[in-house]
């Protein structure tokens, strides 16, 4: 996760570099450190350093790291010619290196030569089966080919070993949601909440999944997780507010006629509706009628 100060720092440096203020290397280092994906900028500024032999040699041994970074950025931007050049330079410098081998395999993948890339990756994995990047590349490759079940299989295999990697859990959760396998997705999001209980987005998505699953128990739980999201975001998350309204009306529908008193916090819905109205009034007054009609339909049902 990138903290706010770090993000500001990156943006500041980026605008500085874009306006010709120098500091390109610092910017690139920071992007690499924070693992951001700003490939176009990296490619542009990285190339400007690499093409200037004086600046390049001033980096010392960091030069090769930059080559690697630019190569990956180039692949991301489909500048395969540039990527190839970078990899060639690295190959000359480090013959037989696994790290360069990884780049070569990635180049194959970028060219969509799936079978060859797969072969390259698996031979790399044979040498070092703990290379997390390669495991993840394989998942990405399966996904790129539209082989979603394959991606799930790879991810599960990966998670069997690296089960504390929450990014992988998130990916798996998103894939399951895209396949409408909500039960499995809810497990993944529970895992994410366990790993980082203070991130409201996980609570929100988990609540979405629970709401989609339906059923009285799940709706109650979803309402609670929407409430948690509201608490964690300070009520600024519109989706969570809508979620509360939907959950309460859903619960009302399910318990209708059973004369079961909904004793837990009946105020929550009215409050969130009020906050929603307030928010729309401030942000986009033109859409207010839409909101009021939507809320009305929820309350009536």
């Amino acid at each position: 996760m990138v903290s706010k100060t770090e993000e500001e720092e990156v943006n500041r440096l980026e605008s500085q570099v874009d306006n010709g203020g120098g500091g390109a290397w610092e910017y690139l280092s920071l992007v690499r450190k924070l693992k951001l994906r700003r490939s176009d900028k990296v490619l542009k500024h990285g190339c400007s350093i690499l093409n200037d032999s004086k600046k390049r040699s001033a980096l010392g041994s960091e030069e090769w790291t930059l080559y690697e970074q630019v190569a990956i950025a180039a692949m991301d931007c489909q500048r395969l010619d540039l990527a190839k050049d970078c990899i060639k330079v690295l190959q000359k410098k480090f013959p037989g290196s696994k790290r360069v081998g990884r780049l070569e395999a990635m180049l194959l993948e970028a060219k969509e030569l799936w079978a060859e890339a797969e072969k390259a990756y698996s031979s790399l994995l044979e040498e070092n089966q703990f290379d997390q990047v390669i495991h993840k590349r394989r998942v990405a490759m399966a996904k790129a080919q539209g082989n979603i079940s394959g991606a799930i299989e790879w991810l599960n295999k990966y998670l069997e070993i690296f089960m504390a990697d929450h990014d992988a859990w998130r990916e798996l959760g998103e894939i399951y949601i895209s396949l409408q396998m909500y039960k499995q997705a809810s497990y993944c999001y529970e895992e994410l909440i366990l790993a980082q209980p203070t991130i409201p987005l996980y609570h929100l998505t988990y609540a979405d999944v629970l709401y989609t699953l339906g059923g009285l128990e799940n709706l109650h739980a979803a309402k609670k997780y929407y409430a948690a999201t509201i608490d964690l975001t300070g009520g600024k998350n519109m989706r969570a507010l809508f979620g509360i309204c939907l959950c309460v009306s859903g619960i009302g529908q399910l318990t209708k006629g059973r004369n079961k008193e909904d004793k837990e916090s009946p105020e929550l819905q009215t409050l969130s509706a009020l906050v929603l109205e307030k928010g729309y009034k401030q942000q986009s007054p033109t859409k207010l009628p839409l909101l009021t009609s939507a809320l009305k339909s929820l309350k009536l049902s």
């Binding site: 609670k224 009520g235 105020e267 929550l268 409050l271 969130s272 009020l274």
Partner: peptide, 14 residues
């Protein structure tokens, strides 16, 4: 517990 906390948050906002 979060429901009550959310309520207080929202009350403040309203």
């Amino acid at each position: 517990k979060f429901e009550q906390r959310a309520e207080t948050v929202l009350k403040k906002l309203v």
